[in-house]
Design a protein around this nucleic acid. Structure first.
Lengths: 110, 110
DNA sequence: GCAATCCATCGATAATTGTCGATGAATGAA
DNA sequence: TTCATTCATCGACAATTATCGATGGATTGC
C-alpha cells in the first residue's frame, strides 16, 4: 500500500460517523448492510451520511453492491489489512523487536 | 483502547506531514529525533510543524523528552499497537477467519 | 402508467483545520 | 551578564470539511 492510499484510509476512518459505520460493516460481514440501515444507525440525515459513505467507498474501505433499489455496503477487509501492514512495516524493517508484541497480541486476539 | 482515543490517533496520522513525521520517528527508534530535525525534514516552518507535532503528542503517539534546550521526540509504539488492535478487534469477535490473513502477513513481515 | 422508496448529487452555510509570521520563555554559550 | 538557539504559543487568514435541505434518477409495487 502506497502512502497516499494509507492516508486516504486513515482520513476516511478519522471521523466518528465513518469509523462507526465501518466497524458496523466489519461486524456485519459477510452480509453487509443497506445504506438506509447505516443512515438510521448514524442518526444523521440521509444526504450527510451519504457524503461520509462516499469517502469510505473512495478510500476502498467499503464496497457497495446494487440490490434492487437499495445499495448493500460491505467492508473491504483487505484494505484494512493493507493499512495495518503499512503502519507496521516501519517497525518491522530491521527492528522486529518493536513488532513482536504487536503480532503476539494479534495472534492471541484472533 | 477506547473509540475516542482511536479517533485521536487516526486523526493525528491522517495528515501527510504528521504521518511522515511519525513514521520517521518509528524508524529512528529508540534514539528519537529532535524537533528541529523533524522540522527540517518536513519542509514547513517551525511554527506550522510545531502545531502538527502537538497533535501527535496529544494523541499519545509521540513522547517528547527535554534534553538541554532541545526536545527529543520518540514514537510511542504502544499506542500504535493499541490502535491496530482496536481496528482488528471487530474482525476478531466471532469471526477470526477475517483476521487470520492479517496475522499471517504480520508474522511473516516481522 | 403512476406513486412510492432508496439513494446520490447539488448548492449554501457553518465549523474546523492548516498555514504563516511574530513573540516570548527557557536553555546553553561566550 | 549578554547573546544566540530551540521551540511553544498567539493571532490572522485561507482552505478544507461537515452539515443540511432540496432535487432528481433508478427501481419496485400497485
Amino acid at each position: 500500500m502506497k502512502s497516499a492510499s494509507a492516508l486516504d484510509a486513515l482520513s476516511a476512518l478519522a471521523h466518528p460517523t465513518r469509523l462507526d459505520a465501518f466497524r458496523r460493516l466489519v461486524r456485519s460481514e459477510p452480509e453487509g448492510l443497506s445504506t438506509g440501515q447505516l443512515v438510521d444507525a448514524s442518526g444523521l440525515t440521509q444526504s450527510t451520511f451519504s457524503s461520509h459513505l462516499a469517502i469510505l467507498v473512495g478510500a476502498g474501505l467499503v464496497l457497495p453492491e446494487k440490490r434492487g433499489r437499495q445499495m448493500i455496503q460491505r467492508a473491504n477487509i483487505e484494505v484494512l489489512r493493507d493499512l495495518m501492514l503499512f503502519l507496521a512495516k516501519d517497525c518491522c524493517e530491521g527492528r522486529a523487536e518493536l513488532c513482536e508484541p504487536l503480532v503476539a497480541e494479534l495472534s492471541h486476539c484472533c
